[in-house]
Design a protein around this nucleic acid. Structure first.
Lengths: 264, 264
DNA sequence: GATTGACTTCCGCTCAGTGGAAGAAAGGTA
DNA sequence: TACCTTTCTTCCACTGAGCGGAAGTCAATC
């Protein structure tokens, strides 16, 4: 019966968010039916909401009737963490110029590394991530740095979880990993070799802010160059220091739209 | 009376969007009161909505209680026009490497240029825009290219508007501008000198896709170098061709979350 | 310890949102 | 052309989610 069998207890907002979530997971444009299927919402409801969202520009609709995220959403989102990205970008570029290797900046988001900036080297290195993408922390150099220099409770919580093994070389043993993180902390940098993607190795240093790790700055290179990786340390540290100086005046919480305190 | 004096006719979604719109316009984090003031919504309503949005991560809340756009929004938005950005980015980087000047890629959004990618040169050039930012079309080289090679109705509609004059050198006369656009079309490139920002000049070429302009590719340099700007044309054209090839397999509408047909 | 301002919670009323169903397009298939 | 299938769009009577005024809490400031 009309209005009676409604999905009780569900707020409108939650439905809108459910729709956005569908787009978060999928690649290309989606048809109305696909959105309904994946969100579990009735078609007429989705149809109405899509209309409102499209009018505003959060979503856009192609000639074939399929929906995709709209450019207005992208524009809006450029304001998120803009200060960090704008301050850091030229320096990440410098790091690339200095080394000629793929350079990247990442932060912790929950139990994963979130890549917020990257300059691609011309060399062929297997790509594991992209800007806006996430990876497990223990399989990447930036991730290890974020764990090693981060707060203890984060590290403890992380090591108590089941650790993924994207490759056969991933260090997934909690005890050994803990020792590796201690070493990283002493040395001031972390590395990986074939741990996330075969053929790629990486090295990273922390970017500190008021004594805490704000981000990780790293390089990705072909595994063949793993032995000589540390020759890039000077560049990494120099650039990291510059980013630290460039962001020192900005409150850490403002840098990214992230809660830094609390146990997620 | 409770529930009686409600803001009739206003959908929940529109309120959520009104809140997001507030963030679109403002710089830093906002307090609840500020959001209420700018959106015109009652405090208890905003408070409840903020709770839901924050839980999901569209917004985040700092220690001081102020709200800002959350990183999840940014992550979500990375999916917008990703194919174009990912395909184009390395090439924009190449353009920077080849020229050493600030390189940028922009598309048309309504009556403005929207910058979607940029690599900063080391030279000091007055900055007028940022990634995710907009500028009037007739005051920028990429904008002129988008007008010159775009559909006729866009151009006609644009020239019938009042044309802003960000500097004293802006070409704001519709007739002269039309002639300039014709010339740009013949020559295959457009330029500006001090037209958007004193001290900066720019040159741009179109990036075509199935015979239409998909985007504009340009360089910004100090005005002192304006006379010799055209020496970068070969690099611009070469890189543009590469981007065209790299995006040829993607339907134009999918490239960006934008409606390309219809009169905005 | 009183005043002010900013935020949070409460709660009964009511209309915006709901979703099933019927209708309209679009896309096959023969 | 007619017929079926799938996908999208519109309609509408019902009702509980959202509403917002008011009262309560908290933290500065005087």
């Amino acid at each position: 019966m009309a209005g009676g069998g409604r999905d009780a207890g569900r707020s409108v907002t939650s439905k809108v968010l459910a729709i956005l979530e569908v787009f978060e997971k999928s690649r290309g444009p989606l048809s109305l039916t696909e959105i309904c299927g994946q969100s579990g919402l009735p078609m007429s409801t989705v149809h109405r909401l899509m209309g409102e969202l499209t009018d505003w520009g959060l979503l856009s609709r192609g000639a074939n009737g399929r929906y995709q995220l709209g450019i207005r959403l992208w524009e809006l989102a450029q304001n998120t963490g803009r200060q960090l990205r704008e301050a850091a970008r030229p320096h990440v570029q410098d790091l690339f110029s200095l080394t000629g290797e793929t350079a990247q900046l990442a932060v912790r988001e929950g139990h994963e590394v979130l890549y917020i900036e990257r300059i691609y080297g011309t060399k062929r290195v297997p790509r594991a991530s992209r800007v806006g993408g996430r990876l497990p922390m223990h399989a990447t150099a930036v991730g290890k740095v974020l764990l090693a220099f981060g707060e203890d409770w984060v590290r403890t919580a992380y090591l108590n979880r089941e650790l993924e093994r994207p490759t056969a070389f991933t260090h997934a043993n909690a005890g050994l990993l803990a020792a590796e993180l201690d070493r990283a902390r002493e040395q001031g940098y972390a590395t990986t070799v074939d741990e996330m993607r075969l053929g790629a190795c990486s090295i990273a240093v922390p970017v500190l802010h008021t004594g805490r790790v704000g981000a990780g700055l790293g390089l990705v290179l072909p595994s063949a160059q793993a032995p000589g990786m540390t020759r890039h340390l000077a560049a990494l540290r120099g650039v990291s220091a510059k980013i630290e100086r460039a962001t020192a005046h900005i409150p850490l919480e403002t840098l990214l739209g992230v809660h830094l305190s609390g146990h997620d």
